[in-house]
């Protein structure tokens, strides 16, 4: 690896007031309208006392069902006349979703079911921001059964079973998937760093 020459800018907390700037209409609706491979993901963000985190912001990024990473733009699609938002066009897939938690610490996104890439079990990258996080936390959400033996995904395989389970969404009877994020404490979500 080359030696990096530029010194990095440190992260700082997103703070409590990102709600006026970062969430956007349709932010959680990444799936094109009526797409048969739509994946509904939802869950709560909780702190070390089990209390809901009502001021978190979550971002999701990952491939479409074919395993390819999208290059399409238009997640925010602004209205040049009013300065507001037109919303997504319902056709393209940018692979990017952004949602804030509500007063109960709950969030939901509708995106496309990710395809497998390069020996990984299908998953999406997740980035968590919140007041009280000095810097963001990376994690991943895997589709159900990714942790069923034999485990082929390199990250999941390297984790003990109870830690591994924190990265795998749970299928629900009506087709949605639940993925809770615990910032601290019992069943703390596995958070990642990249090297």
């Amino acid at each position: 690896m080359t030696t990096p020459s530029a010194r990095p800018t440190p992260a700082q907390t997103v703070g409590p007031f990102h709600g006026c700037a970062l969430p956007f209409p349709g932010g959680g609706d990444a799936a094109p309208a009526g797409h048969p491979d739509t994946l509904v993901l939802h869950g709560h963000v909780r702190d070390g006392a089990g209390a809901p985190v009502p001021d978190a912001l979550l971002e999701f990024w990952g491939p479409g069902p074919d395993g390819e990473l999208p290059r399409a733009t238009g997640s925010l699609r602004r209205d040049p006349m009013t300065g507001g938002f037109l919303g997504r066009d319902g056709i393209g897939f940018t692979g990017f979703a952004r949602v804030a938690t509500d007063a109960d610490g709950h969030w939901a996104v509708r995106t496309l079911r990710p395809g497998a890439r390069g020996g990984h079990a299908p998953h999406l990258a997740v980035c968590v921001f919140a007041r009280g996080l000095t810097r963001h936390l990376f994690t991943r959400v895997y589709l159900p059964a990714a942790d069923r033996e034999p485990i082929t995904d390199p990250l999941l395989a390297a984790l003990p079973p109870e830690r591994r389970a924190t990265l795998v969404a749970v299928a629900e009877p009506r087709g949605s998937h639940r993925f809770d994020i615990r910032l601290q404490g019992a069943a703390e979500t596995v958070f990642l760093e990249f090297a």
Binding site: D47, A51, R131, G132, L133, T134, Q184, E188, F191
Partner: peptide, 8 residues
């Protein structure tokens, strides 16, 4: 940060 930072 007290209740929001990962301990692992």
């Amino acid at each position: 940060t007290a209740l929001r930072h990962p301990r692992q």
